[in-house]
Design a binder for these strands. Sequence first.
DNA 1: CTAGGTGCAAAAGGTTTGCGGTTAA
DNA 2: TTAACCGCAAACCTTTTGCACCTAG
Lengths: 143, 143
Amino acid sequence: MTLVENKKFERQLTERLATSGFRFTSQRRQVYDVLLQKLDHPTAEDVFIRAKRQLPDISHATVYNCLDALVQCGLVRLVQLERGATRYCPNMEEHCHYYCDECGAVFDVSLPANRPSGPRPKGFKIDHYEIAVHGVCADCAKR
Amino acid sequence: MTLVENKKFERQLTERLATSGFRFTSQRRQVYDVLLQKLDHPTAEDVFIRAKRQLPDISHATVYNCLDALVQCGLVRLVQLERGATRYCPNMEEHCHYYCDECGAVFDVSLPANRPSGPRPKGFKIDHYEIAVHGVCADCAKR
DNA sequence: CTAGGTGCAAAAGGTTTGCGGTTAA
DNA sequence: TTAACCGCAAACCTTTTGCACCTAG
């Protein structure tokens, strides 16, 4: 059983797509499933390769289309950690990303008490925030 | 007088390049100057266009080389805010970036009390962090 | 039925690389 | 003097676009 067949995720996907005015397609389901299967913050290219195992005819354009739809539904977020490809994260709970600048590994750390507070630009309406901590992971530090 | 001719910035640039083993070149000086002149978090392409006004023969490769050298010296940091081009920021004080998802404007807000604290991945050595707050700026909210 | 989605291929945009000539130290 | 740096142009990688066909609702 794929993860997205879990009642929770399946219902979430169906409902969110519908309420945002998107159609439910096998490609969107597969892209979401790929993201849920391995929470390693893959790039669009990674998602493309993994999705191709189940849907050999899927295209890059469709992967981008699906990722964009999932982002607009609030099921997935973009993660920008380095020059180069954007990565994608289906964990929508408040958390920050610890990023290893040497090996590229990403660790989610939940962040209940670190919401940016204090001053902000006058009239700025906050939608969401993204906290990235750069450094070296334990494995890379050993070497 | 260009900003980098300010004793403070000029000395900083000269010393940092030297201690990091980089040569002082007119291109590096110009790139740093461009970043200091207008703190609007330009892309590499923006920097290229602005630098070309003083150094008409400067190339893209050199702009990237200079930006990388400045980053390695600790005089400039990368800012990743959206899919597409990386932006550059010469403000090395602790601050977060308020980013308008509509017009692309970036506002620096100093952040003395919002250092990520609490749990972190075991053995992870923090180098620096980057906080981006996404939303809509006052001007765009009016429309 | 039909607007929205898909696959394909080409184009666009951002960044890196290789190379011969130049220059800071 | 010479390793580092430069400009140029091509290559590379990521993302977007245009179009004919397909399909969820």
